[in-house]
Computed example of a mutant assay.
Amino acid sequence: MTTSTYRTGHVAVIGRPNVGKSTLTNALVGAKISIVSPRPQTTRHRLLGIATFPEGQLLLVDTPGIHREQGKSSATAMHRWMNRAARGAVEGVDAAVLVVRAGQWDDADSFAYEALRGAGVPVVLVVNQVDRMKDKTVLLPYLAKISEGRDFAGVHPVSALKRNGLDPLVKTLLALMPVQEAMYAEDEITDKSQRFLAGELVREQLMRQLGEELPYATTVEIEKFEVDGTMLRIGAVIWVERDGQKAIVIGKGGERLREIGSKSRIQMERLFGAKVFLETWVRVREGWSDDEAALRAFGYHD
């Protein structure tokens, strides 16, 4: 239901890698739609999170971390694609959220801010993980320092993980949105399909369990997604670039692959609200992360 004061609009969630953009998106949506791991660049795709409130609807564009490219020769096709996805997220939005980690501001944060300033949209600064600051007396001087000389439409210290400080942030963002009706139904939380989300949940477990060994050498393709009564039957292929990586993913006696599958299945059942029968396979495609055709085949579309 909408009123003459109901507001709806798009908000790009931007920042350097691993500052909590996906955690913030999930917290505002109220459901896990973006995967999270301690590894930088876990998010590879632009993903729309739909956060609906009595006063309005925020369409949150979660993005890969934006970072300065070091030249075409040193960046893989995957890294170039993620940067394009992050930069493209600000096109057509009504506002942007710049997420930084509490107590930190470096050249990468400045680079992200300048990219947003060039887009000509209002920028709201979200300082995440304030709960991890041991000395809270440094917070206000820190906020004053990073705000100096920069034009922010609002500054909000939050803990996305603990969901603290989100209500004032929502109020600020809604005030920047145009007055218009909701674009999505109240029970919709993302524009992505269950098939896409299933692949992301498998990839999340890969990042969590193998991030140190295979940080970016894996991707996931869902070959089968079938509804069988009250059960979902899902077949997931984990792609790696070398035979040695395949052995790492499978683990001794297949133990690691079973663990990845088990934890992925639990997350799928939680998100989809249904029983899941999940099968996983590991296959090799050499150099897929630097192959534009392979990226397109695996769903990395501009």
Rank of each mutant, 00 (worst) to 15 (best):
V127R: 13
S34T: 09
S110V: 11
A115N: 08
R68L: 11
S37Q: 01
G120W: 10
L60K: 03
R132T: 12
S73D: 10
A85W: 01
L140W: 13
P54A: 08
R101F: 03
A77M: 13
I146H: 13
N83A: 14
R68W: 07
H45I: 04
L98H: 06
A119T: 11
A112R: 03
D94A: 02
E148L: 14
G120N: 12
R117L: 12
P141Y: 08
G71N: 01
A108E: 15
R46K: 12
T76L: 05
R80S: 11
R84K: 10
A96D: 07
Q70T: 12
K72R: 15
S147D: 02
H79I: 06
E148H: 14
L59Q: 12
R68Y: 03
V126K: 07
N128V: 08
T76D: 06
G88F: 07
A115M: 10
S110H: 12
V100N: 08
A102W: 09
R117P: 13
D62P: 00
L98N: 02
A115V: 04
M82V: 01
A51G: 01
R68A: 11
A144S: 15
M133K: 13
H79C: 06
D135R: 13
V93E: 12
A119Q: 10
V97Q: 02
A115S: 14
T52V: 00
L48S: 03
Q129A: 15
A144M: 14
V121F: 08
I35T: 09
S74A: 11
D135T: 14
S37I: 01
D94W: 05
A86L: 00
T63P: 02
A86H: 03
V124L: 01
P141L: 14
L60E: 02
G71P: 01
E55H: 01
I33Q: 06
Q41G: 06
G118N: 07
V126S: 06
D106R: 15
S110P: 05
M78V: 02
G103W: 03
H45Q: 07
Q104H: 09
Q129L: 14
D94Q: 09
V138W: 07
D62C: 00
G49R: 03
T76F: 05
L143H: 06
L98T: 03
R132K: 15
E55V: 03
A115G: 09
H45D: 04
V97W: 02
A108Y: 04
